[in-house]
Amino acid sequence: MVSGFRLSFSLLSLNPGTNPCHRRRGRDAPHHHMRSTSLPCPVLSPLLDEIRSLRSSPDRDGFDRIYGLLAALDDLLHLPLARDTLRRRTASADRLLRLADAHGSFRSAAIALKQHLSEGRTAIRHRDPVRFASAARSHRRVEKEIAGLASAIKDLARSPPLAPGIGPDSEIAGIIAEALAATAGTSTEVFLSVSGWGSWMVWAMRRPSKKGSEEAEMVAMEKLEEMMERNEGLEAGSGRVYRSLVNTRVTLLNMLTPSS
């Protein structure tokens, strides 16, 4: 490790003025201020940027940005130094498994939500309040399941304490811990945002039906179409994140498995 610099955590306290990967190379600048220990800046800097971005606004374009973070993390994991570190630290693989399981379950829930929204739309077209009420109740049940998923990974949004020590091992372990914590935090925010969608359906279900109220039906259909469109985006986004988490975990497990 280069004397005079150690990457401190939380990493998100870094900004372009303090992150050595963002420092402008100048003739009078000491060499050890231009890079972070033995980690190459082309790999480290994008990952720190992705972590900082997720921490600052976790509920905006959440799944797309998680996918970007995981891609940057994958670059780090393929460094020989990262491989050596992870062979001695196995907690990250367990955290990745929990995150992957949560996203796999969320994607299944999103598919179920789409079915219930479609059922609600059909009920409106046929002016069938009983059918609509059934779809709304089913929708709310799935939303409660999603809220449960958010609760199950909430603790992963906190970076675990690191073992004492300095050096590349500690630095890489800390970076990975921060990346997974940011992923969990953003996932939790997105899950919770979805868990309140069905309140509109419950409200509509409890309103007295007015036969022939075409305007009310039109408003309801437009709302359902909007919810279905958002749901499709979430289903696709979570699917990408799930596959990326699984691939990253496979990479970790391959590092942890002794070669024959």
Score class of each variant (00 low, 15 high):
Arg83Tyr: 03
Asp84Tyr: 07
Thr85Met: 08
Leu86Cys: 01
Arg88Ile: 05
Arg88Phe: 04
Arg88Ala: 14
Ser92Glu: 14
Ala93Thr: 05
Asp94Val: 11
Arg95Asp: 13
Leu97Met: 08
Asp101Glu: 12
Ala102His: 03
Ala102Leu: 03
His103Asn: 14
Gly104Glu: 07
Ser105Ala: 15
Phe106Val: 11
Ser108Gly: 08
Ala109Gly: 14
Ala110Gly: 11
Ile111Trp: 08
Lys114Cys: 13
Gln115Asn: 12
Leu117Gly: 10
Leu117Pro: 01
Ser118Glu: 15
Glu119Pro: 01
Glu119Trp: 06
Ala123Arg: 04
Ile124Asn: 02
His126Cys: 00
Arg127Phe: 07
Arg127Lys: 08
Asp128Ser: 06
Val130Cys: 00
Arg131Thr: 10
Phe132Trp: 05
Ser134Asp: 12
Ser134Val: 11
Ala135Trp: 06
Ala136Tyr: 02
Ala136Glu: 10
Ser138Arg: 15
Ser138Cys: 12
Arg140Lys: 07
Arg140Leu: 04
Val142Glu: 06
Val142Arg: 09
Glu145Gln: 15
Ala147His: 12
Ala147Cys: 02
Ala147Gln: 14
Ala147Thr: 07
Leu149Asp: 02
Ser151Ile: 11
Ser151Val: 14
Ser151Trp: 13
Lys154Arg: 15
Asp155Ala: 15
Arg158Cys: 01
Ser159Tyr: 00
Pro160Gly: 02
Pro160Phe: 07
Pro161Gly: 03
Pro161Trp: 04
Leu162Thr: 11
Pro164Asp: 10
Pro164Gln: 01
Pro164Cys: 02
Gly165Ser: 13
Gly165Lys: 12
Ile166Val: 03
Ile166His: 05
Ile166Cys: 00
Gly167Lys: 05
Asp169Arg: 10
Ser170Met: 03
Glu171Phe: 05
Ile172Cys: 06
Gly174Ala: 01
Gly174Met: 02
Ile175Lys: 12
Ile175Leu: 15
Ile175Cys: 13
Glu178Gln: 02
Ala179Cys: 02
Ala181Val: 04
Ala182Tyr: 05
Ala182Asp: 08
Thr183Gln: 05
Gly185Arg: 09
Gly185Lys: 11
Gly185Tyr: 06
Thr186Ala: 14
Thr186Ile: 04
Thr186Lys: 08
Ser187Ala: 15
Thr188Ile: 08
Thr188Cys: 08
Glu189Gly: 01
Val190Arg: 13
Ser195Pro: 05
Ser195Lys: 01
Gly196Ser: 10
Gly198Cys: 00
Gly198Asn: 00
Met201Glu: 13
Val202Thr: 14
Trp203Thr: 09
Ala204Phe: 02
Arg206Ile: 00
Arg206Asn: 14
Arg207Cys: 00
Arg207Gly: 00
Arg207Ser: 03
Ser209Gln: 09
